[in-house]
Amino acid sequence: MSDPHAIRRRRLLFRAEHRGFKEADLVIGGFARARLQSMTESELDEFEALLEIPDQDLYAWVVSREEAPEDVNGPVFRALAKSAHAVSRT
């Protein structure tokens, strides 16, 4: 029987890499590839909740095109936004 935590991480990675438009796939999927394996259960919960947000909204907040609502602005979101900004500077 497969490890339920590994299954959850694979599902989250798939969802992160298939957001609906290429820029979001790259930014959110890249973050997931780099960070999912080290996330705690609470961080996985936060990331999963972020993936429920419509693509255009989440991407706009991550790249600071729009300000993120306070209820979204948790540690995982801030790490995601920071990684997106690091990518954009290279």
Rank of each mutant, 00 (worst) to 15 (best):
62 V>D: 08
64 S>K: 14
61 W>A: 01
69 P>R: 13
39 M>V: 05
83 S>Q: 14
74 G>A: 06
33 R>T: 00
54 P>M: 07
83 S>L: 02
13 L>K: 13
64 S>D: 13
66 E>D: 14
64 S>W: 02
62 V>E: 06
21 F>Y: 15
82 K>H: 10
69 P>M: 08
57 D>F: 12
82 K>V: 01
70 E>A: 14
17 E>L: 08
80 L>S: 02
44 L>W: 06
77 F>H: 00
60 A>E: 09
68 A>Y: 04
75 P>N: 07
76 V>N: 10
63 V>H: 04
26 L>C: 05
36 L>Q: 08
49 A>I: 00
51 L>W: 08
52 E>C: 07
4 P>Y: 05
69 P>H: 07
10 R>F: 04
89 R>D: 03
45 D>L: 07
39 M>K: 03
36 L>K: 00
29 G>R: 02
33 R>Q: 08
9 R>C: 03
80 L>A: 13
78 R>P: 00
58 L>Y: 07
62 V>N: 03
41 E>Q: 13
15 R>E: 11
71 D>C: 02
9 R>L: 11
79 A>Y: 03
51 L>H: 06
65 R>T: 13
62 V>C: 01
55 D>A: 15
10 R>I: 00
53 I>K: 04
28 I>E: 02
38 S>H: 11
56 Q>Y: 07
77 F>N: 05
43 E>P: 01
33 R>F: 04
30 G>A: 08
31 F>M: 01
29 G>P: 03
65 R>C: 03
44 L>K: 02
78 R>C: 05
36 L>S: 08
30 G>C: 09
89 R>T: 09
52 E>V: 00
11 R>I: 10
90 T>R: 13
42 S>H: 12
28 I>Q: 08
17 E>N: 12
78 R>M: 10
72 V>K: 14
74 G>R: 11
71 D>W: 14
6 A>F: 12
46 E>H: 12
12 L>E: 04
6 A>Y: 11
85 H>W: 09
